[in-house]
Design a protein around this nucleic acid. Structure first.
Lengths: 189, 189
DNA sequence: GTCTATATCTTGATAGAC
DNA sequence: GTCTATCAAGATATAGAC
């Protein structure tokens, strides 16, 4: 892995662990094993490097979600697989984590990938729930957009609760509670 | 309001807006209209002042939740009132906001009020859902602890989505989706 | 109690040698 | 491309006058 690549990967880790405000160029360089000069040769500055790292975090989140949600099986089963997918709940969401950062929210270029990721994910879940209504798996009275928003929120809130209590279990419990409720909207046989 | 009080109130605002890492003593002093000397006379330093402010945020959250959840009406109605209560979703949760802060999570004294608040709130909702099962309002198959965790997570995740998209509407949509699902666990007649 | 230096470290970035 | 100064500004805190 070349220096430029190590800088991006180190920044991805630090953004997830400490957020944007809590991550200094010095810390990035130390983790990447690169000097000041290297970093400023490859990137304009902290915002540019953070953007490169954040874009990669967003792309990875989307790819993983796509693979799980496009899979085989019923709509509820696929959503369940996505919510229960192995994740490091204590580390926080590599994208949602940044939504709390004042300097990210204040910079349109940095906020864009965060907003786009959630807009896409919510839209994908909405389409999936709608598909379930069409094919008779789900009750037609279910509101796809509102349910999709609740699903994404449970995941993000699960990360928050996990960090607050330093327990990954709480994430799993919240997701289980949500999926049990969603299961009630399934039409029987 | 005396100087000590103004320092605490300014810190409360800044913690919510910018988090712990993003809030400097200088910014606190400027907002409170107090000098360096004043702040360090009343408090040992930034962590001590932040703890005083966070304790107050946690107490206020708990008081408000208690008032809504102890009210009249059915269990689902009271939970609905709490989730839909007027809040500044774009400002973020005055307590949950701090769960994402690396320096808060790393300091047991600062993390304590955050953890205690969520443990209490989840417990209160669990008891309420259990009450609903006992009195026949809710399906006995509902898991109170998991459902309570999901409810708290939806609120926290709603804050995250609202900030990510700079839209308070998303918070309302997530909460609506969750409450519609919970409504299906109510026993008819 | 509050104010104004003062001090030390870190941040974020630039300059220029190699 | 990478390194080592160097820099101005801010973060966090202390000292001492009033």
């Amino acid at each position: 892995m070349d220096t430029r690549e190590r800088l991006i990967e180190s920044t991805r880790e630090l953004l997830r662990e400490r957020g944007y405000v809590g991550t200094s160029p010095k810390a990035i360089q130390a983790r990447a094993g690169a000097g000041q000069g290297s970093m400023y040769h490859h990137f304009d500055g902290k915002p540019a490097l953070a953007l490169a790292a954040l874009d990669r975090n967003a792309a990875e989140l989307r790819d993983r979600a796509e693979r799980t949600l496009d899979g085989r099986g019923g709509v509820v089963a696929r959503i369940g697989a996505y919510l229960r997918r192995e994740r490091d709940a204590l580390a926080g969401c590599p994208v949602g984590r940044l939504a709390q950062d004042p300097d990210v929210v204040a910079d349109p270029a940095l906020r864009a990938p965060v907003e786009e990721t959630f807009t896409w994910l919510t839209g994908r879940l909405t389409a999936l729930l709608d598909e379930g209504r069409e094919n008779g798996e789900l009750d037609g009275a279910l509101d796809p957009a509102a349910t999709a928003a609740a699903l994404v929120a449970v995941v993000q809130g699960g990360y928050v609760l996990a960090r607050a209590t330093e327990s990954a279990e709480v994430y799993a419990r919240a997701v289980d509670g949500m999926l049990a409720l969603l299961d009630r909207a399934r039409l029987k046989g």
